[in-house]
Nucleic acid binder design. Sequence first.
DNA 1: TAGATTGTTAATCGATTAACAATC
DNA 2: TAGATTGTTAATCGATTAACAATC
Lengths: 213, 213
Amino acid sequence: MGSTVSTSVIKRLPRYYRFLQELMNNGITRISSRELSEKMGFTASQIRQDLNCFGGFGQQGYGYNVSELHDEIGKILGVDKGYKTILIGAGNLGRAIATHINFDARGCKLIGIFDINPQLLGVKVGNIEIMHTDSLARFCKDNSPVVAILCIPKASAQQIADNLVKFGIKAFWNFSHCDLKPTYNDIIVENVHLGDSLMTMVYGVNNLLPNKE
Amino acid sequence: MGSTVSTSVIKRLPRYYRFLQELMNNGITRISSRELSEKMGFTASQIRQDLNCFGGFGQQGYGYNVSELHDEIGKILGVDKGYKTILIGAGNLGRAIATHINFDARGCKLIGIFDINPQLLGVKVGNIEIMHTDSLARFCKDNSPVVAILCIPKASAQQIADNLVKFGIKAFWNFSHCDLKPTYNDIIVENVHLGDSLMTMVYGVNNLLPNKE
DNA sequence: TAGATTGTTAATCGATTAACAATC
DNA sequence: TAGATTGTTAATCGATTAACAATC
């Protein structure tokens, strides 16, 4: 239960989950850590090490049952939990996230979208009507969402996050251009810095290409 | 030049860059590794260690000059390079990326957007007209883009990437739901797995909340 | 049974932190 | 000069890899 698994391992779990899904789709029912390692680019040792953080899912002399392992990892990740989720900020990025992400397959259920811009009120994104940020408190009281996705400018992000914690939000998926510091303990924060990711890539290019200057 | 800096360090550079920008905006001209460590949540040791991978930017007894350090890191990252960039896939996510990201401030210059859907031809995203994927070869010949952003379904991602490499693309910012394996060497790939990020967060929630079952 | 492959312990490697001499 | 803080080396910590006994 509570025994903490390192975040390095956790971050690899979704990747295992994806590859196992792929294998299932290809009708492969059984795989050894060595075969999986070749497909995924991890070492077989690491795969066995990782999986054994959660239990012995394999069988000596046989390997792993693909769909069984897939389901186990899904359970560990919580893909079937359907945590009630709201999205704040229905700009370009917010609307894209709302429509592009398969929340249901990843343990979330999108139940509300909010924006501060009155012009967006009632506009539909997927099958959800955008509501005004003013109605957040009421909505949270009535529906008890657990996860909040922040697609708002960094200036307002911290303050809105603080409020949301008061409204009972337990986790943030944060696309705002800042590092959230939740005021309270036991709040999960996953910061997504797309700009940082792009700059990392640019560093790579910059150090790959011969400088022409 | 070529002396390799670990990716752990590289991935922290954009974060330094952001915080230093923030400090500049607040009119702070000078900072010690200890002060910076408190703001950023790294240890002072790590900050000095990181920066010294690239040179001695500080001064004993004084600390670091904020704007100088900011500019040095910017130069290391290549934020002023303006690498010509194209975006493939003008769906919800593609259009959001095109409009939401400040490419110019991150070493990229978005010069073309492509989609396979004929209905999108000529539609403007920002100030760029969507072109058909069929014209990619021609466009690359004429304009020599270096970076490609992939916002296309995973089924077609690998094949399009292979083609783009033939057209001279040197780096991918990949939002497709797959891990790109570029066929050639010396190609930079930055995979962004938004779904994985969400699942990591869900794992956190799942292991934080008391299971009610 | 013999062969294969796991689960798990031990060895290695790399990254982070601590310490301190150099120096502004 | 004395105080502060870097640059850098050494110590620690954690994560990855290798090895192998257990076992299917």
